[in-house]
């Protein structure tokens, strides 16, 4: 068909012209140059969990009210945030639970990201059962007795094994390996998202049913649903080196901050402040509870906390 040939030619020409005109303007702005510098804008990533939202809300409050910055927040997945941090799309991650692969790639190899020090909060991952169940069966908190109670944790999904409720794919887990290496009569069930996991836990708690879940602290839900950790074989340095052979508990993780390398150098007071930012698990939980439990807006919660804890955050401000 004549039309189609004409058309194809036209499209090809248009495409070629478009590419040419784009290329003609030369190399594109990679976005890096604007990342640092004196325009007094700080870009932070907001992770999906509430504790980290508390970090960002408080940091934002202080940066804007005390230091005169504009803070832009962006929501994204953790690994995406690492990538964005490396590109300079964001300036800092305030709470990182450990991403060895990314740390190696960006901090050590590419050197586009630098460490920003401890957040002050220690994170811990483990297996938890509800307190009402542990009160009734105190020996459930030892992993050796888990097989005895496996039947209690059974659901339609897990068939003839006990169910171990897992959360979002974001989270680091060796549970499948632990189950098989410790020969436990359990089966993981991936809830798929934190929201689904929390909802499921709340549902069990309301009905006072027994359940076993992968869980962590600090977490705001812990104030609403009391849970007791099941003790797994003690964590030793290197026992989780081979993901296939893990048979021990999760370590305690001092949560880390990471900064974009350029921002760390040229970010001025903001970079200084974010490096100094350091608070305790209790303090973070206080804000997190306001957000999650009382359903306050993060900004309002941060404002309230900042007003009441001046002594704490004064220390984070850059020394003049």
């Amino acid at each position: 068909m004549r039309t189609s040939r004409t058309l194809r030619t036209a499209v090809a020409v248009a495409g070629a012209l478009g590419v040419l005109s784009l290329s003609a303007c030369g190399a594109a702005d990679t976005g890096k140059s604007s990342a640092a510098g004196g325009d007094k804008t700080v870009k932070l990533t907001v992770p999906s969990w509430v504790g980290a939202q508390a970090n960002v809300a408080v940091a934002k409050q202080i940066l804007e009210e005390e230091l005169g910055y504009t803070v832009k927040t962006q929501q994204m997945g953790e690994v995406l945030a690492w990538d964005a941090l490396s590109k300079g799309d964001i300036d800092a991650i305030l709470e990182d639970w450990g991403h060895p692969k990314e740390e190696k790639q960006y901090v050590e190899t590419k050197k586009t990201v630098v460490k920003g020090g401890d957040l002050g909060v220690t994170g811990h991952i483990g297996w938890f059962v509800p307190k009402y169940f542990a009160d009734e069966h105190p020996d459930v908190t030892d992993w050796k007795n888990l097989n005895k109670y496996a039947e209690e944790f059974r659901t339609a999904e897990s068939g003839d094994k006990g169910e171990l409720l897992e959360g979002s794919p974001d989270y680091v887990t060796h549970d499948d390996a632990i189950i098989s290496n410790l020969k436990l009569d359990l089966k993981t069930k991936y809830a798929g998202s934190e929201a689904a996991q929390i909802t499921a836990i709340k549902k069990y708690a309301k009905a006072e049913k027994p359940f076993l879940t992968y869980w962590w602290t600090p977490q705001w839900l812990n104030a609403e649903v009391e849970m007791v950790e099941v003790e797994l074989p003690e964590h030793e340095e290197g026992c989780d080196a081979d993901p296939e052979k893990v048979a021990c508990a999760y370590p305690n993780t001092p949560l880390q901050k990471f900064l974009n390398a350029d921002f760390a150098e040229e970010g001025g007071e903001a970079a200084e402040f974010l490096k100094n930012f350091n608070w305790t698990t209790e303090q973070q939980n206080e804000v997190a509870l306001m957000i999650a439990g009382e359903k306050m807006a993060p900004e309002a919660a941060a404002e309230k906390w900042v007003k009441e804890n001046e002594a704490t955050w004064k220390a984070w401000l850059p020394q003049k």
């Binding site: 990533t45 939202q53 929501q75 997945g77 934190e194 909802t199 957000i291 359903k295």
Partner: peptide, 24 residues
């Protein structure tokens, strides 16, 4: 789109999930 930081209504929905705030 909000998952990769596009903002807007998506971000509101997404952040409401973190606190399991169905209303929001």
């Amino acid at each position: 789109a909000a998952l990769v930081g596009a903002g807007g209504l998506g971000e509101e929905v997404y952040s409401a999930l973190a606190t399991t705030d169905v209303g929001k």
